[in-house]
């Protein structure tokens, strides 16, 4: 092998000075793996760097694939979890109550129209009004946008007993429960990405496609939040999970009155219990609301 000759030919080629005979000679040299290694050593670091830049350039142009709807909702609800305020969140009074009530408040000589929205028991009765210069109250305005909802417990693409026995609106698991069987994954996707109805307190399901347990639930201030947890590669036994979840949720009577942190603790506990009941073997899909 002649490194020197190879380099001369490559440089000449780079300058477009190669004769036909020299190009033939270069081809002959590059047929030798050892010589190709020389060229790789020469170009290696630059190859990777320029390749990465081209990858990034291509990525910037990409518009596919679209983000799966359930994934998007999970990201957004995950952000809601992170943003959960430990301190009162300031919301303009006008935005909260609307212009009419704001005008009424101003007419009532309220000098500060700031609404402190504090998730928790306080906000169920309307939170607190900060009115430093004119302490008073506003009767009738303290109405949080929420009501007690049911726990729909939708099972099951693959459990015959539930599929056949449960009615979609039947309270088969308890007074606040209803089983909503899903026939297939498409219906699961549609169901899990739909907005949480006002009459429903929580929706929980197993996203087997992503290997995640997911829950969507309504906070005390009416905000819909979400949480997900990896199932560590294990799949969920439907029957066991249904039983486990029912046991967990049965303790949740009056959940609607819980403040945010209690909600989160409950959901975490709920998820943990569901996970503990998951065997290693996959047996089918579970959907719970």
């Amino acid at each position: 092998m002649n490194d020197h000759r190879l380099r001369i030919l490559l440089d000449a080629g780079a300058q477009r000075w190669l004769t036909d005979a020299e190009e033939t000679e270069l081809s002959r040299l590059l047929e030798d793996p050892a010589n190709r290694e020389v060229l790789d050593r020469e170009l290696g670091p630059l190859k990777h760097r320029f390749g990465a830049l081209l990858d990034y350039h291509r990525a910037r142009q990409a518009v596919e694939p679209k983000i799966p709807p359930a994934r998007l909702e999970a990201l957004l609800t995950g952000m809601t979890d992170r943003m959960a305020p430990s301190a009162p969140k300031v919301v303009p009074f006008r935005r909260w109550f609307g212009p009419v009530m704001a005008a009424a408040a101003i007419a009532a000589c309220l000098t500060v129209v700031v609404w402190y929205q504090r998730p928790g028991p306080q906000s169920r009765t309307g939170g607190e009004l900060a009115i430093p210069s004119a302490p008073t109250s506003v009767p009738g305005v303290a109405t949080a946008p929420r009501t007690r909802g049911t726990f729909e417990f939708a099972v099951v693409a693959t459990i015959a007993s539930v599929r056949g026995a449960a009615e979609k609106t039947g309270s088969t698991l308890g007074p606040d429960w209803r089983v909503v069987p899903q026939e297939n994954l498409a219906s699961l996707r549609a169901w899990s990405t739909a907005s949480l109805p006002a009459s429903v307190t929580a929706r929980v399901w197993v996203d087997e496609e992503a290997g995640k347990l997911r829950a969507m639930y309504r906070l005390a201030d009416g905000t819909v939040a979400g949480i997900c947890r990896a199932t560590d590669g294990r799949q969920v036994d439907s029957t066991e999970t249904v039983v486990g979840w029912y046991g967990s949720l049965s303790k949740g009577q009056g959940l609607q009155a819980l403040p945010l942190r209690e909600w989160q603790r409950w959901v975490n506990e709920f998820m943990t219990k569901a996970e503990q009941r998951m065997p290693a073997k996959r047996t089918g899909g579970v959907i719970a609301e």
Binding site: L10, G13, A14, L18, L29, L30, E31, L39, L43
Partner: peptide
Amino acid sequence: PIGTVGTVIYR
């Protein structure tokens, strides 16, 4: 020819 490819890429 591989020589052409090598030249193009090197250049």
